[in-house]
Design a protein around this nucleic acid. Structure first.
Length: 425
DNA sequence: TCTGGGGTCCTAGGACCC
DNA sequence: TCTGGGGTCCTAGGACCC
């Protein structure tokens, strides 16, 4: 029997405030104090809001067309998302965080857990403040820091820190008081379905969830539900994942700027997605043994019949060859395409990913691979040098009418001096 | 007119085997 | 007419996350 002393464990969650908005603000002094929102791909939904935008009632995830009035009335600045920019800023933030603890889990583009167990209790809040200050000073990105002894509690602490002036909370005493005022649906790991279940049973805040009986949770939910409860009690159940593991699947999909009816146009988009996915896994030195293609009409359109379908094809030999993947995906697409529908989205998923170079036993592989590998390498090199999709395949089409809308892009490029704000003295 | 995209993990159930 | 039990592996679909 072994004892793990968890009483000293301290996990910090550093979360960038309104991350995408903050990134846009770095390069645009005029939008510092006014309401700003960033839209999802295709200018579809609101996915990042400044405090000012939250205050005037723009909700997270709301479709853009529903808030257009509000936007107009309040002179809200709108941006299409620019993931190249956000990814770049994110890497800079994470690099700084790594300087504070090598036990770090980069949890998403805008947040990371770090282990601060080595810092004494009485110093840890100050340490959190130093992290926040350094990230702000070196990147310009504001963050909130929540510290407690499990990941779930540090999420709670972070929530509280976001509303707190200092922006840093070490949640150690009065935990129950905080949990009592913490909405059940805001608890990490409690989504729509679990919320519904808990509310039905009178569990409407985090404290009630913490005090629920073990047998009830196990019976009514699953292991994840039980883990959340334990974590609220201060017992670490969700380990810090410090390994930088490679992805297990790779999905590329897009909604269309305009609804698509023809098989030809669907082929163009599926081809484009395949090329991008193949490039991604080649970048990670991976190969795939299974490709899924899917298409669907809009689930929101009540006037037309809904159709959604997918087709998965297992590949006899693991590959990351663009041409081969395109060919396979198209045969799948043809099987599920139905004439007469207004398609809204298409995509592909590569799964059963493996490390490339783990050779399979097949006599033909070496000869076939050599030639195509050289072609792929040349393609990737050209595209990274001269811009994405400079080299493509004919099937992907050009000037496609189905491509996504992106009408509010700031077009900021961190590799270009032109993007820097100019100061006149 | 207009409603994102990319992941992970878990579970139930089927296929298969001895 | 009677028709086991237990194990593994795989997959699709659901729930959750940001």
């Amino acid at each position: 029997m072994s004892f793990i002393n968890n009483s000293k464990k301290k996990i910090a969650l550093i979360d960038c405030n309104s991350f995408y908005v903050s990134c846009e603000r770095l390069f645009n002094p005029k939008i510092q104090k006014i309401p700003v929102v960033v839209l999802s791909n295709n200018d579809g939904c609101v996915i990042s809001r400044s405090t000012e935008a939250k205050r005037i009632g723009i909700k997270m995830g709301e479709p853009y067309f529903k808030v257009k009035e509000l936007v107009k009335k309040n002179n809200v600045q709108i941006f299409s998302s620019n993931y190249a920019l956000y990814g770049d800023i994110s890497r800079r933030v994470m690099k700084i965080l790594k300087g504070f603890s090598d036990k770090i889990e980069i949890y998403s583009i805008d947040e990371a857990f770090i282990d601060l167990s080595h810092i004494k209790n009485e110093l840890v809040e100050d340490y959190g403040k130093r992290i926040k200050e350094r990230v702000l000073k070196w990147t310009g990105i504001p963050t909130s820091v929540g510290i407690s002894n499990t990941k779930t509690l540090s999420k709670v602490a972070n929530h509280v820190a976001k509303k707190n002036k200092a922006g840093v909370i070490f949640l150690k005493d009065n935990i129950d008081e905080v949990l009592k005022n913490f909405d059940i649906s805001d608890v990490w790991g409690v989504g729509k379905q679990l919320s519904k279940l808990y509310l039905k049973n009178g569990i409407n805040n985090a404290l009630k969830l913490k005090n629920i009986s073990n047998s009830w949770v196990k019976k009514s939910t699953n292991v994840l539900g039980a883990k959340t409860v334990m974590e609220l009690r201060g017992i670490p159940c969700i380990e810090l994942d410090t390994e930088e593991t490679k992805r297990k699947s790779c999905c590329v999909s897009r909604s269309f700027g305009k609804k698509v009816q023809s098989l030809e146009k669907l082929k163009e988009s599926v081809t484009t997605h395949c090329l991008n996915a193949a490039e991604k896994i080649r970048n990670d030195n991976q190969t795939t043994r299974s490709i899924t293609v899917f298409i669907r009409t809009s689930p929101f359109d009540k006037n037309r019949r809904y159709y959604s379908n997918s087709f998965t094809i297992d590949l006899p030999i693991a590959t990351n060859n663009s041409l081969e993947l395109v060919k396979t995906a198209i045969t799948g697409l043809v099987k599920i395409y139905k004439h007469g529908y207004f398609y809204q989205k298409a995509g592909i998923i590569l799964s059963k990913l493996n490390e490339a170079g783990e050779k399979e036993l097949n006599l033909l592989t070496p000869i076939l691979e050599n030639k195509s590998q050289k072609l792929m390498k040349a393609m990737d090199l050209t595209n990274s040098k001269y811009g994405r999709n400079v080299i493509s395949v004919a099937q992907a089409g050009i000037n496609n009418s189905w491509r996504m809308r992106r009408e509010h892009s700031s077009r900021i490029d961190t590799a270009s001096f032109d993007s820097l704000p100019k100061i006149s003295i």
